[in-house]
C-alpha cells in the first residue's frame, strides 16, 4: 500500500516514472510546444509587427522637421539612417522588447491555467521537467527570432528610407558606412541578452500568478520601472543590477576607443536574472499541486 501511494505521488508530482511505458523526449515535447505556438494568432501578430512596425516609425521620424535632439542618436536621426536605427534601438530597449517577448513568454505557462489543460498535459507521457524546459526553449526561440526580425527590419528600413550621412559615434567620430552597419547590427544583437532575461522574468510571473495578463503586462511595467529607477542619480549602485541597464550597454561599441565593460556586466546581470527567475519558476512548476485544478 505504501509502495502504491508513493508511486501515485510520483506520477502526480513528476509525471511518469522512468521506464514505465514510453516517455516523450525533450525533442518531441519541443515540437509539440512549437506547434502550439505557431498556431497562436498572438505570436504571429508579434512577428508581423516586428517585421512591419519599424517602417511607419522610420517614416514618421524621418518626416520630422526637427530632429529629436534630446535623445541619444536623435541629433542626426533625420540625416543619417544608421543614427535613426540606433535612436529606435534606444526606445526598443525601454519597453518594446520586454513587452514583445512577454506576449509569448508571459502566456506559455499561464495559458495552460487559462484553458485548464495542466491536468491533460501532465498526465501525458512527459515529465514536468521536460515540459518546463520545452516551454522555456520555445519562449527563448521566439525571443531570438523576434529580436532578429525587429533588428533586421529596423536597420533595413532606416538605412533604405533614412538619410545618407555618415554615422557620428558617441565620441564624435565619423564612421564609414561599412563599419556603421556592422556596429549597428552588433548593437541590436546585444539586446538579445536582456531580452532573454525579461523572457525569464515573464515566465516566472506567469508561473507564479497563473495569469496571462500579469505575465504579459508585469514584465513591461517592471522594465519601465527599472528604467525610471536607473535614471535616478541618488541610487546609482542599484542601476548596475537592474535588468534594464544591459539595454544601454551597446553605447560602448559606438565609442572610439570602444569599451565593452558594460556589455560584460550586462551579460552577467542578464544571466543572473535569467537563472534566478528560471530556478524559482522550475521549483514552482515542479511542486505545483494540480489535483485541485
Amino acid at each position: 500500500m505504501t509502495n502504491l501511494s508513493a508511486a501515485e505521488k510520483r506520477i502526480i508530482t513528476a509525471g511518469p516514472a522512468p521506464g514505465s511505458g514510453r516517455t516523450a523526449g525533450l525533442g518531441a515535447v519541443l515540437v509539440w510546444e512549437l506547434r502550439k505556438l505557431s498556431s497562436q494568432l498572438r505570436a504571429k501578430l508579434v512577428l508581423l509587427g516586428a517585421l512591419l512596425g519599424p517602417i511607419p516609425v522610420v517614416a514618421a521620424i524621418n518626416a520630422q522637421a526637427q530632429a529629436p535632439k534630446d535623445t541619444l542618436f536623435g541629433r542626426y536621426a533625420t540625416t543619417s539612417g544608421y543614427s535613426l536605427s540606433l535612436l529606435i534601438l534606444g526606445f526598443a530597449g525601454q519597453w518594446a522588447l520586454p513587452l514583445l517577448t512577454s506576449i509569448v513568454a508571459g502566456d506559455i505557462f499561464a495559458s495552460e491555467d487559462q484553458h485548464g489543460t495542466w491536468k491533460t498535459v501532465l498526465t501525458r507521457s512527459a515529465s514536468r521537467t521536460t515540459i518546463f524546459w520545452a516551454k522555456v526553449m520555445t519562449a527563448f526561440g521566439f525571443a531570438t527570432v523576434m529580436v532578429a526580425v525587429l533588428s533586421a527590419s529596423t536597420i533595413a528600413a532606416s538605412v533604405l528610407l533614412g538619410g545618407s550621412d555618415q554615422l557620428t559615434g558617441v565620441s564624435g567620430q565619423l564612421m564609414s558606412n561599412h563599419e556603421a552597419l556592422r556596429l549597428v547590427a552588433e548593437s541590436w544583437a546585444s539586446t538579445l541578452l536582456p531580452t532573454l532575461g525579461f523572457t525569464c522574468l515573464a515566465i516566472l510571473i506567469s508561473v507564479a500568478t497563473r495569469s496571462t495578463a500579469a505575465g504579459i503586462a508585469a514584465p513591461a511595467v517592471l522594465g519601465m520601472l527599472m528604467q525610471l529607477v536607473g535614471s535616478l542619480g541618488s541610487i546609482a549602485g542599484l542601476r548596475a543590477v537592474l535588468l534594464s541597464t544591459p539595454y544601454e550597454a551597446w553605447h560602448g561599441l559606438l565609442a572610439a576607443p570602444r569599451f565593452t565593460g558594460p556589455l560584460v556586466d550586462g551579460l552577467v546581470v542578464s544571466a543572473v536574472w535569467s537563472v534566478v527567475c528560471l530556478a524559482v519558476s522550475f521549483v514552482l512548476v515542479r511542486r505545483r499541486d494540480i489535483t485541485g485544478g
Binding site: 510571473i205 517592471l222 541610487i235 546609482a236 549602485g237
Partner: peptide, 24 residues
C-alpha cells in the same frame, strides 16, 4: 507575488546602496 517582487527590489536597493552607492 507583486508584494514579494517589490520587497525583493527594496532589498536589492538597500544592498546596492550599502555596498556601492558610487556613481560612475
Amino acid at each position: 507575488t507583486l508584494v514579494l517582487a517589490l520587497a525583493a527590489i527594496g532589498c536589492a536597493a538597500a544592498i546596492a546602496s550599502a555596498v556601492g552607492g558610487g556613481t560612475s
